[in-house]
Design a binder for these strands. Structure first.
Lengths: 210, 210
DNA sequence: GGTGTTGTACCGCATTTCGGGGACGCATCA
DNA sequence: TGATGCGTCCCCGAAATGCGGTACAACACC
């Protein structure tokens, strides 16, 4: 079994030293790069002959943030997997990172053994992430079977159309010759059916391909 | 803490009995339905007053398969989470199930405690799934489409992106590390620049192509 | 004959959004 | 040097929205 070539990008010197000491002593791992910033990492990348297979990248970094650096790194290392690490269990940030091509993430509160597990997981083809993020991810690409089938009734679709056109409840009501209160009822029903909780969500879901 | 209402759909009588015995004896769980087939389950569903919050659904079922039944179940129980269980760690099958709206899955080789953990995970908003599947899911991600530049500043575009993603001001503020008030300022400016007067107008304008 | 779904309409309450402001610092440009 | 644009933050008040209900008639499916 070959060692997994690992890169560490972490600005906090203490954390960096700790991770470095622990991870690099693991028999399965081989730290090829240890950097304090994204810029530093990209620089060092040009100096090594063989790049890392896994990059452990902090989200909060001075200069280029982890998320900003992600596309650059992936451009340089298309074959590598990037594992984000963050202090906050912030689903939205992580989600953005995943969209940029991260393969998973670890919370900084994680134990060292968890770090190791995550790295190995990624290297084995996994994608470590927290429950909340996983759910978010599913919801995204699982674009609910609506619009086409009779999920929404005619009236409901008409209301949705109005909303997508940028109208308010009153305007929709006027367009359809209904009471504004009735429109509100429809909107609420549609929200439930499509599992959204705001107009903006509704519109973006409908206007993108569901 | 209320009990999680659970439904069990499993054709093998032995496995069913085992799961039933174990899960229903858990203090956190309450089995409201135990069925041997999807048809059976849907039938029983009409007979209970309050439906399950989590459905543990076998993929391999006589008659309607789990995957075929999924859309029907989700139509009936839009609020419920469906947890698939399968013998094979077949990423492709599971992937399909997830697209149909499953919230996660358990391998049948899992220990009873893992079953329980998965159910609780789902009920807590998680999405239990295997590494391989998670990775497959991530692979289906594309970078976001960019809005055309010129008129809006970077910051303004970032705010718009958040709005298009269905976020509220606070969420956008958090994503960008700003005050919600600042986000409001941007939103107002964007409204002026694009001559719109509501989020929905903004979103439909941007997503269409101006 | 019950149960569910749809269409219609209403109420109340908490939060968000919208449209006006003002304010400060820092650029750049005239 | 003053004007203008941009980034950041704040306040107020009115309107819209989100979320929880209730209500009833019509119809349909069992």
């Amino acid at each position: 079994m070959e060692k997994i070539r690992l890169a560490l990008v972490e600005d906090d010197p203490e954390v960096r030293a700790l991770l470095h000491a622990y991870l690099c002593q693991q028999p399965e791992l081989d730290c090829v790069i240890v950097a304090g910033s994204a810029e530093d990492f990209l620089q060092q990348l040009t100096e090594v002959r063989v790049g890392p297979q896994v990059v452990l990248l902090d989200v909060q970094l001075p200069g280029l943030s982890g998320i900003e650096a992600l596309p650059l790194i992936r451009q340089r290392l298309p074959e590598a997997d990037v594992l984000m690490q963050t202090v906050f269990d912030d689903a939205d940030t992580i989600f953005q990172a995943l969209r940029q091509g991260a393969t998973g993430y670890v919370l900084k509160s994680a134990a060292l053994t968890e770090y190791k597990a995550a790295v190995l997981d990624v290297a084995r083809g996994g994608a470590p992430m927290s429950p909340a993020v996983a759910r978010k991810v599913l919801a995204h690409f699982k674009p609910l079977p609506q619009t086409q089938p009779g999920l929404l009734t005619e009236r409901e679709q008409a209301v949705v159309q109005g909303i997508v056109d940028g109208l308010g409840d009153k305007q929709v009501a006027h367009r359809l010759g209904l009471s504004a209160e009735t429109v509100r009822t429809y909107v609420k029903r549609v929200y439930k059916k499509l599992q959204v909780s705001s107009r903006t969500e509704l519109v973006s879901r409908v206007v993108r391909g569901n």
